[in-house]
Amino acid sequence: MPRNTVESSLAPEVEHFALHWETSVWPLVLGVGVLLVLPLPFSFHFVYQQSFLAVLCLGVGVPLTVVAIAGWVNEGLAGHGEGLSTPAMGWFILAEALLFLGFFAAYWVIRLSAPAWPPAGSVPMPTVIPAVMTVLLVSSSFTYYAAEAAHEKGRDDGFRAWLGVSIALGAAFVGLSAYEWSDLMGQGFSIGTNAFGTSFYSITGFHASHVVVGLGVFLAILLPALGGRTSAGLIKAGGIYWHFVDIVWLFVVSQVYFL
């Protein structure tokens, strides 16, 4: 017999549903924001060389996106939370894993069919920075675990502190990543140098963008938490996502840097 686990949470809304159609402005605002943040500026800048229009799109789109996410989170915390974020995150991670698999598949095909690896024009990969980055990211998974544990025990101060530490570790990771990129580019190794440059920057960049999204999720948890509002589902789902990004990094660091 299947169990309808959220039946109880829906029951009080029965009357609510019967009275009027549910609405929310934030999905549409976020949809417009997304369009203005990526597809339009990219096309204006790279395809039509209209960089001013690209900046204009970003100038409108970025605040719009931030406002939409804030509004959405606010609505979710105000009692319209859906409570099934954790199982849903599992499906999302399946899709995310396949994204990285696609990049890695291309990387290995290129690498294994190359006459020599790394190809001419590559520079030696740093070893200390990625090692430090690994330590930062792995420890951030543990600090986030500590934050979750504190939240479960109702120790709000501990929760906020550990969450803050996790954010700091993640931000340091992104900072080091940026430093390393600029260092390598300074040595003349860029995304267009050769097939290794292509793979290196696309994989690390794509991973770093996931860390940035994870940090965004953490901020969306931390900022309302400062005012005492939290959602257990969001905290758990955000944690699963963060651990996933952490695990992907282990593949990135081992296969792109050290192997």
């Binding site: 291309a106 095909v109 290129i110 267009g192 097939a195 440059g197 292509t198 696309s202």
Partner: peptide, 16 residues
């Protein structure tokens, strides 16, 4: 962006 995923001249492959 001038990458070489599908450019055989620079180690890429259209079959990817």
């Amino acid at each position: 962006l001038g990458t070489h995923f599908f450019n055989p001249a620079n180690g890429g492959d259209v079959l990817i």
